[in-house]
């Protein structure tokens, strides 16, 4: 399994390195590009774990859609680096505090899992079903045991989407919109009229 070990260390180093680069590079567009690299190598790590479905979903959803929109927004914003750096010293203690708490929590959870084991919770890890790929296994679990949570998560996303649309949708009066049905319904009778224009008067609409 030397090949797997090489692949793991390579992907892990790239993940951590590009993760660091996300927060340290100056140019925000480069930052997003490094974020994409991080996602991509994380997907590679999933593949090494044998979770090919999760790996592909990570790439399709996060790299293919979410990060594109990030990049889209960041490219269009004209980020002023001077203004960004101004508040650095002021927000440093608060940011450090939040980062510290987060790190502590993660270490606590990680040690709890490592010593107690994730399996010591209320539910035993599912035994691998014979002859099923992990895509099918995930499907069975999501749509049977966890179907309510799954649907609830979908509803939360739907509400968020509708909220975003409601907040940003404004109908400007006086904007001419294309009504396809009207265009299709036009024919020679109602689409044309013949007008006699007298010299010097014009149409006078």
């Amino acid at each position: 399994m030397a090949l797997q070990a090489i692949a793991f260390y390579l992907l892990a180093i790239v993940t951590i390195g590009s993760g660091l680069a996300v927060v340290s590079v100056r140019n925000p567009v480069h930052s997003v590009l490094f974020l994409i690299l991080t996602f991509f190598s994380a997907a590679g790590l999933f593949l090494l774990l044998g979770a090919e479905f999760l790996a592909m979903l990570l790439v399709v959803v996060y790299v293919g859609a979410v990060a594109v929109l990030f990049l889209f927004v960041v490219m269009m914003l004209d980020v002023d680096f001077g203004a960004l750096k101004q508040g650095f010293a002021r927000y440093m203690p608060l940011g450090g505090l939040v980062a510290g708490i987060l790190a502590a929590e993660m270490i606590v959870v990680a040690t709890a899992v490592a010593t107690g084991g994730a399996a010591s919770g209320p539910r035993e890890p599912m035994a691998a079903l014979d002859g099923l790929s992990n895509t099918e296994t995930i499907g069975r679990v999501l749509y049977t045991d966890y179907v309510y949570f799954f649907q609830a998560a979908g509803l939360v996303l739907l509400v968020a989407m509708i909220g975003a649309i409601v907040l940003t949708l404004r109908h400007k009066p006086g904007v001419r919109r294309q009504v396809i049905a009207d265009q299709v319904a036009r024919n020679a009778q109602n689409g044309m009229r013949s007008v006699q224009i007298k010299p010097g008067e014009g149409m006078g609409e």
Partner: peptide, 19 residues
């Protein structure tokens, strides 16, 4: 096993070259 998803993933990455 996830060939279709792989194709979808790779084609969704294609946009990066252009952007």
């Amino acid at each position: 096993n996830v060939g279709v998803l792989y194709l979808l993933a790779i084609s969704s990455l294609g946009v990066y070259g252009i952007i």
